[in-house]
């Protein structure tokens, strides 16, 4: 992967990455919003991340693929600062978040929104309370201001036409509605970076396509940097601007989606062939 902006990046394997001087990483980069270098994480005898390097492109949909148990969710938790690495650095707009104390990390998390695999909505709160949660916790806004922002998001995510949606509890929502409410909660504080943890897991093909469109539309409409953890190859190549494959604790290959699709590495070929892929990219729905 190139260290600085290049017009046509090609997929590259981690070992071939030219080293980037540490000084360059500590400055905000116009192209790369998150830059990870030499990330190591072990859980007891299990070495999950093994010197992982990865760059996340600003304003694009960055997808990280990999099989089960390869460390995708562990990587995601490192990005949010929910886990600390044994060694390595994570630069967000040039700021290394690894040494940050809890209070500083809490402030930095305002840049992030996270959409969990099964939405992780709070069971005891209704839709409005769930979506408004980050605003209530972080700011002293009036009820009217909060409701205005919640209703705007419900409209933009096509949830406003669901009867009585505001007062419904998570248990009363369908899987797709839960994902949208989860996305609304992640978007309410206008984050710069949105993390999606396996957003299409457990969904039927129609719902999967809807979630794909939701991610695409959110990326375009809100101009956020999206990081999607997935093992759904079809979705990946429908919506991904940039795809990275996590394999045995390292990024095996990374680059534009169509280039990764043609990468010669055996694990990538296996993933692509098992998915039977020749998937045309989706357009953004009007």
């Amino acid at each position: 992967m190139p260290a600085s902006p290049s017009p046509s990046p090609s997929p590259s394997s981690s070992p071939a990455r030219p080293p980037v001087p540490a000084a360059d990483l500590t400055k905000p980069d116009p192209r790369w919003q998150i830059r990870i270098r030499g990330l190591n994480k072990t859980f007891g005898p299990q070495h999950v991340l093994r010197g992982l390097d990865l760059d996340i492109e600003r304003g694009k949909i960055n997808i990280i693929i990999g099989g089960s148990g390869q460390g995708k969710s562990v990587l995601m938790k490192h990005l949010m600062g929910l886990l600390k690495p044994d060694s390595g650095n994570i630069y967000v707009d040039g700021l290394d978040i690894v040494p940050l104390a809890d209070v500083e990390m809490a402030k930095l998390r305002r840049k992030f929104g996270m959409v969990f695999q099964y939405a992780a909505l709070f069971d005891s709160q209704n839709v409005v309370e769930n979506i408004a949660f980050p605003l209530i916790e972080r700011y002293k806004l009036s009820r009217d201001e909060i409701m205005a922002r919640v209703r705007e998001l419900l409209k933009r995510l096509d949830l406003d036409h669901v009867d009585g949606i505001e007062q419904k509890f998570p248990a009363e929502l369908s899987g797709g509605q839960r994902k949208r409410v989860g996305l609304a909660r992640a978007l309410i504080d206008r984050p710069e970076i949105l993390l999606y943890d396996e957003p299409t897991t457990g969904l039927d093909p129609v719902a999967t396509k809807n979630v794909d469109e939701m991610i695409l539309r959110t990326s375009h409409d809100f101009g956020v940097t999206s990081v999607v953890i997935s093992h759904d190859m079809a979705s990946t190549f429908r919506i991904g601007d940039r795809v990275s494959m996590l394999y045995e604790g390292k990024i095996l290959v990374t680059g534009p989606a169509q280039d990764v699709l043609r990468a010669p590495d055996a694990p990538v070929r296996e993933f692509v062939e098992m998915a039977g892929l020749t998937v045309p990219p989706l357009g953004v729905s009007a």
């Binding site: 938790k77 949010m80 929910l82 990390m105 809490a106 402030k107 998390r109 305002r110 992030f112 929104g113 996270m114 969990f116 695999q117 099964y118 992780a120 909505l121 709070f122 069971d123 949660f133 980050p134 916790e137 972080r138």
Partner: peptide, 17 residues
């Protein structure tokens, strides 16, 4: 326990709570 296994506790942390 239910909040833990459905990642609601992780969600709290992501909102700096």
């Amino acid at each position: 326990g239910s909040m833990r296994i459905t990642e609601q506790i992780d969600a709290l942390s992501t909102f700096a709570v």
